[in-house]
Design a protein around this nucleic acid. Structure first.
Lengths: 251, 251
DNA sequence: TATTGTTTCCGTATGGCCTACGGAAATGGG
DNA sequence: CCCATTTCCGTAGGCCATACGGAAACAATA
């Protein structure tokens, strides 16, 4: 399945839901069996356990012992529900502003990474038209504040923000992608690569790929670490170097 | 829809397809109406025009005027077909090794970005268990060769490789995500943000978001550029700073 | 030409998805 | 008790991937 798109519906309705601005309470009429909060929590639970692909309206309704169509009374549709789920988990970051600007950005990266680890389906959510809720906005403010404190010019802050945000979400996505594949396919990454041993035997061409061959012979790939560890250190290194570059560019 | 997973089938069969190692020609039996190449080309055409979500086996078969199940004679399943599509478009990069190591990495980034622009559905393909075909391998060799020429130690080359590859694919994905949303939803990004004007009026809290307020007042967001241009310059800036950092880290 | 072995083609069937529609059921006030 | 209001939810339509197995096409042989 391709990436889930959200944020397509009526902005006024969706924003009111994201910020939980309640419609004035209804004095009459049938009592609701479920609330928006319950639906969001149940949907997150299903997606955490079985992936976003399994998070169908029917499945969430089942989780709540309610008919499928009842959900549509409280939530406009599936896209908006994903918006609500996304902002809810972003709020879990609970960012604490302390330390140098670099430390705060690393804190942001760590907390964001933790969200992705806890909710791997975040990998499948597009963030180019994000839910404009408190979870997203608080994160943006946090990163912008750190970058502003670094001494960058205002215009540079906004440019650097795009770069940092892109790197963090991209890195978190890739890491989680790996972990999620292990769960959904039931095959570990190491096993997957092992099953493709035949590639190196039958298809790898030493003449065509001299650099890879050299690196192999230099033992650059002979580590005790797992695939996941390699990705993690690659991204840690990348963020460090990106911040080095940003810092160095100011002089 | 969530991200498409591929590479799940029999590795031997999939590798033979990726490298077009033909089974020995069949002298007898019914003549095939379609070839693997035709199927891949048709699938890419459908995905280019209508997105990966619309690229169903039935839709591809229709494109070729063939029954749906006929495809399964030539391709094990949908996952493997996506592998073949992916490697095919990666081959379009046609990388030319010239210039300094930095210039070559930027060349790689540009060519990869061009592939994503031409085939926006690449955003929806997971690259953590990539198709081990010529398109992918040539790209890896190219980046590794550039990094090795930069003077990094072998072990550092492999770490930096993860960071660069992650950044480039992440950046290309985000850019294309934006473009693809414009096509599939029929609403431009500028229009989408415009429709959320109400957010700034009804929900934005100046006290809660002082940095954003300051940046706004400093005219940091008052540019003539589009969303897409902003993303592009953010990622160009980020790659530049990342390479600065890698270069600086060697001294 | 008729037969046989081999390969490809493809119709059917299963179980899932989202959500428009509209009637049934519950609730509080008069 | 009645009725306006609100929520609940069954049905129905049109998509998806692919297992299975028989029909059809083709080359070599008799």
């Amino acid at each position: 399945m391709a990436t889930e798109r959200s944020g397509g519906g009526d902005p006024v309705r969706t924003l009111a839901l994201l910020w939980r601005r309640p419609a004035e309470p209804k004095p009459v009429g049938r009592k609701p069996k479920v609330s928006v909060d319950q639906i969001v929590v149940a949907a997150i639970a299903v997606a955490d356990r079985e992936g976003l692909g399994a998070m169908s309206m029917a499945r969430v309704a089942q989780e709540l012992s309610v008919g499928t169509m009842s959900l549509y009374t409280h939530v406009p549709g599936k896209g908006e529900l994903i918006d609500l789920m996304t902002d809810a988990v972003l709020q879990e970051r609970d960012l604490t502003p302390a330390g140098t600007w670099r430390e705060r950005i690393k804190h942001y990266a760590d907390r964001t990474r933790a969200v992705y680890q806890a909710h791997p389906w975040m990998r499948d959510v597009s963030m180019v038209r994000p839910p404009l809720g408190p979870g997203l906005m608080d994160g943006q403010e946090f990163v912008l504040a750190a970058l502003a404190d670094s001494g960058l010019e205002p215009k540079q802050v906004t440019v650097a923000h795009v770069a940092v945000e892109g790197f963090v979400h991209g890195a978190a996505s890739s890491e989680v992608d790996d972990r999620q594949l292990e769960e959904t396919t039931g095959e570990s990454s190491d096993s997957w690569w092992g099953a493709r041993q035949v590639f190196w035997e039958d298809y790898f061409d030493v003449e065509r790929y001299p650099t890879m061959t050299n690196l192999w012979n230099a033992n650059a790939y002979h580590t005790e670490t797992t695939i996941a560890d390699n990705m993690r250190s690659g991204f840690d290194y990348g963020l460090e170097k990106l911040l080095d570059g940003i810092e160095g560019g100011m002089r």
